[in-house]
Design a binder for these strands. Structure first.
Lengths: 147, 147
DNA sequence: CGGTTTGTTTAGAATTATTCTAATTCCTTC
DNA sequence: GAAGGAATTAGAATAATTCTAAACAAACCG
């Protein structure tokens, strides 16, 4: 797993490359998202970050999340109109939303499938992003697999 | 194209089958969604409906939309955190969201592709719904095709 | 260095889509 | 045609997010 300093460096580079500053707030928000990859909401991130940096404000968490998203360091995930969740997995993947528990799981999507999906578009349509999500129940079998 | 009375009957049947009433408000909301299949938001539907029924309230539009969705007569579509849109196309399909114009277009998805997507899920995952959406630009070619 | 500019954080107000509340109206049925 | 349940309504409430304006911090420059 990536060490703290590695992620720190990645963050710093990404930000400074775009003329942005690697502030302590941005670093701790990013760290928290990497630490527990459970697709937390902004509120949840705020709570986790406050444990390490009690003076941070919710607005700052939203600001940091916005810059992280804009710089391609984290990904936003939306289900219906529920609060936006944040995901540090940058590989092409889909999401499974467990209706019972509310948990979100990453689902691998081979790039040939992505290609197939893109081929569904009639000519003249150019997709910059494709979003695929599943909703349903992750049964006992699925839970067992994760442990 | 379905006549007004046909859609009226379909609606009536669907609602009464579930012990619900086919009220004028529900009928006009449904009609408006069928008339212009441009994936309107609740606000847009409200505006269109008010032209025919000036006394209707926004709360009623939301109520009607909810019952229509629950009874499988229209489908909800969400893009990021934008206002929910409503779609009368009940066939399996995806959505393309034009970033420039904000327009939403239906994209056919053959059921064999849906089957393939479902196969991406590890064992133990059971999806009750699959959502696929594209975001990007629908160029001149695509627009020409629609006219 | 000291001053200026530029970027960042912050608290709280504002916004916005949606839901809730409580009262009224409308059907349906007996 | 009265009772009871369902639906509608206006407006208040909610909740996630964004905005605002002020304070703060860091880099920049002579």
């Amino acid at each position: 797993m990536a060490s703290t300093s590695e992620t720190h460096d990645a963050l710093t580079k990404r930000l400074t490359d775009t003329g942005l500053r690697a502030t302590p707030q941005r670093e701790v928000v990013f760290k928290v998202i990497l630490e527990k990859r459970d697709h937390p909401t902004a509120d949840e991130i705020f709570a986790r970050v406050k444990a390490q940096m009690p003076t941070i404000s919710l607005a700052t968490v939203y600001n940091c999340l916005e810059t992280l998203v804009q710089n391609g360091l984290v990904r936003q995930v939306n289900f219906d109109r529920a609060p936006t969740r944040y995901c540090p997995n940058l590989h092409e993947h889909a999401h499974f939303h467990d209706e019972k528990t509310g948990a979100v799981h990453d689902i691998d999507v081979p790039s040939e499938v992505m290609v197939k999906l893109r081929e569904l578009l009639p000519s003249g349509y150019d997709a910059s992003a494709i979003e695929l999500s599943f909703r349903g129940a992750a049964g006992a079998l699925a839970k067992a697999k994760r442990n």
